[in-house]
């Protein structure tokens, strides 16, 4: 396959970026999208140019590092992570636009690499259960109804890639935050911190400069793990409940 790539190049956070064009030949449809970029980078290095920086790690769709907007879609045309996207999803001769996640809470570090530490700070605000090591009761002491456990798991599948933010017209992090809140709030183990968790995480989310939710639904469409839009509704409910009950 022969491709015409247009890639966002930006030296660092301080400088402005722009799209740069590259022609790439000899691409196999069996390559993953990132292997296609590897090929480009190998060529760039040998010709003395700086390779395109992009985040990637596990390349099996679970670490959440890869983060490319491909032809306007977070993670590209298939519902999966960028690393699991293959070149057979494109045609010979295609022009492919590759851009970083765009959101003011995710500033660009270089080229296609963005800073997603805002997500970590949302977790630090309350995305945990306080269970110091060694203090845990016997695992079977508290049965968890299977539907609750399954629901918690569905939300816990979130890989924190940030595609939801990238796809959201408002740069909102509601889907991420709600997945995290719901994972812990539906479990009995999460109950003691249920109110503070949702209030603190939402407050931190706002603090980080993410936008508000207009329920456009783009986040859930882009989510490679299929976290449903309904997750946001559940968090809103939790937040309202917590606001009523909060003793603060």
């Amino acid at each position: 396959m022969k491709l015409n790539l247009r890639v966002w190049r930006q030296k660092n956070a301080e400088t402005d970026g722009a799209m740069a064009s590259y022609e790439l030949d000899g691409i196999s449809p069996d390559m993953s999208f990132l292997e296609m970029l590897d090929t480009l980078n190998e060529e760039l290095i040998v010709s003395g140019e700086e390779p395109v920086a992009f985040d990637h790690d596990c390349r099996e769709g679970i670490c959440g590092a890869c983060s490319l907007v491909i032809n306007g879609d977070a993670h590209g045309p298939e519902r999966t992570t960028t690393c699991q996207l293959h070149m057979r999803s494109f045609q010979d001769g295609d022009t492919i636009d590759i851009e970083p996640w765009r959101a003011s809470a995710f500033p660009v570090i270089k080229d296609l690499v963005v800073d997603r530490t805002a997500f970590d700070r949302v977790i630090q605000a309350g995305g945990f259960i306080t269970a110091p090591t060694g203090a845990a009761p016997e695992a079977h002491a508290t049965p968890v109804p299977k539907p609750d456990a399954d629901l918690a798991f569905e939300h816990a599948e979130c890989i924190g890639c940030g595609a939801c933010v990238a796809a959201c017209p408002n740069g909102a992090a509601m889907l991420f935050t709600s997945a995290k809140v719901n994972h812990l709030n539906v479990l009995p183990q999460g109950a003691p911190e249920r109110e503070t968790r949702v209030l603190d995480m939402v407050a931190q989310m706002d603090e980080e400069g993410f936008g508000g939710c207009t329920l456009a639904g783009e986040c859930a469409t882009a989510c490679p793990k299929g976290i449903p839009l309904m997750s946001i509704t559940s968090m809103n409910k939790e937040w309202l409940r917590a606001t009523r009950k909060s003793k603060r």
């Binding site: 907007v69 306007g72 003011s104 207009t214």
Partner: peptide
């Protein structure tokens, strides 16, 4: 706030949301 949270538009634009939402 929303406009501030997404100051830079994508070069490759795509309209997907329903008309009512947009």
């Amino acid at each position: 706030r929303d406009i501030k949270a997404r100051p830079q538009k994508y070069v490759h634009k795509k309209a997907r949301m329903s008309y009512a939402t947009r």
